[in-house]
């Protein structure tokens, strides 16, 4: 796909995600009490509050923040796992960036999920079908994108599993029998099956031991280098963000409080919360 590099691949504007009905006391986010995303009157939680950002081709954007800051909600909205309350997103390679992907029909959303995006969840039980073989998990994505040839599917699955350093001999084994790190790598290979231009990674290394973490991070960097996939990396771990991301967005209580080059944010944090975050880095 030919793509103008100066144009963002994905641009998200004013994305808002609310859990709860909302009331007159919180009809505008400015009315919410200072330092909270929780409406004291109706109990509505504003998980993402007016988030805007751009993602360029081949770039890794980090989203960092404490738990409950809305970073996972954000990527789940982008992958259509949950619906949004308000906002828009455009993908440059989808209908030439003219369509707000949140307004598309569920069939079109499915197309975008299968062809233009890949998602890796923190919990591999969500991203993988544990009762089906690893090859089958990759096959599911390939079939969804219209490959109906078993030999082609198996050749591609072998290639992908080899790429994420899983022995091809274990291709027909269920991921249930794999270690956490291996499951995570199967998930990554599944997400990459259809060469998506955008990859969403939600806390991929959380819960893995350090050596396994390092291998997964290496893999992500290699993928970015080789296929120029644009990625959004969600993490609460500044170490991961520092290692992977070109640009970083800091979220707190549903709002984006600071955004910029990763180095800048880590060396010279402006917002008090970011300063706290950087200084608590071990």
């Amino acid at each position: 796909m030919i793509h103008d590099e100066s144009r963002p691949l994905l641009s998200v504007r004013h994305l808002t995600k609310r859990f709860g009905k909302g009331c007159t006391a919180c009809s505008h986010p400015e009315q919410l009490p200072e330092g909270s995303n929780h409406c004291p009157h109706c109990g509505t939680v504003w998980a993402c509050n007016d988030i805007s950002f751009d993602l360029y081709e081949g770039e890794i954007l980090g989203i960092v923040g404490e738990s409950g800051s809305g970073k996972s909600s954000l990527v789940q909205c982008l992958y259509f796992d949950s619906s949004i309350t308000d906002g828009s997103a455009h993908i440059a390679t989808y209908q030439d960036g003219a369509a707000n992907i949140f307004r598309e029909s569920s069939q079109q959303k499915r197309y975008i999920r299968n062809h233009l995006m890949g998602m890796v969840y923190q919990n591999p039980w969500i991203g993988l079908r544990m009762q089906f073989s690893s090859g089958g998990n990759i096959a599911e994505k390939l079939i969804a994108a219209g490959t109906f040839n078993v030999h082609e599917i198996r050749a591609r699955a072998k290639e992908l599993l080899d790429h994420v350093e899983i022995p091809v001999t274990r291709m027909d084994e269920v991921p249930l029998h794999f270690s956490g790190g291996m499951q995570q790598r199967v998930q990554i290979s599944k997400a990459l099956a259809n060469h998506p231009p955008i990859l969403l990674l939600d806390e991929v290394t959380t819960g893995l031991d350090l050596s396994v973490q390092a291998r997964v991070l290496d893999l992500i960097r290699r993928i970015q280098r080789e296929s120029r996939t644009a990625m959004i990396v969600v993490s609460h771990d500044l170490g991961v963000i520092r290692m992977l991301c070109d640009r970083t967005m800091v979220m707190k209580q549903g709002r984006c409080i600071e955004a910029g080059l990763t180095d800048q944010i880590l060396e010279d944090p402006h917002h008090a919360y970011t300063q706290l975050l950087v200084h608590s880095l071990l």
Binding site: R110, R129, F132, G136, E140, I143, A144, V150, I153
Partner: peptide, 11 residues
Amino acid sequence: DYSGIWLRLYE
């Protein structure tokens, strides 16, 4: 969305 049943056939 019929990838689930196709996956069964693949397996």
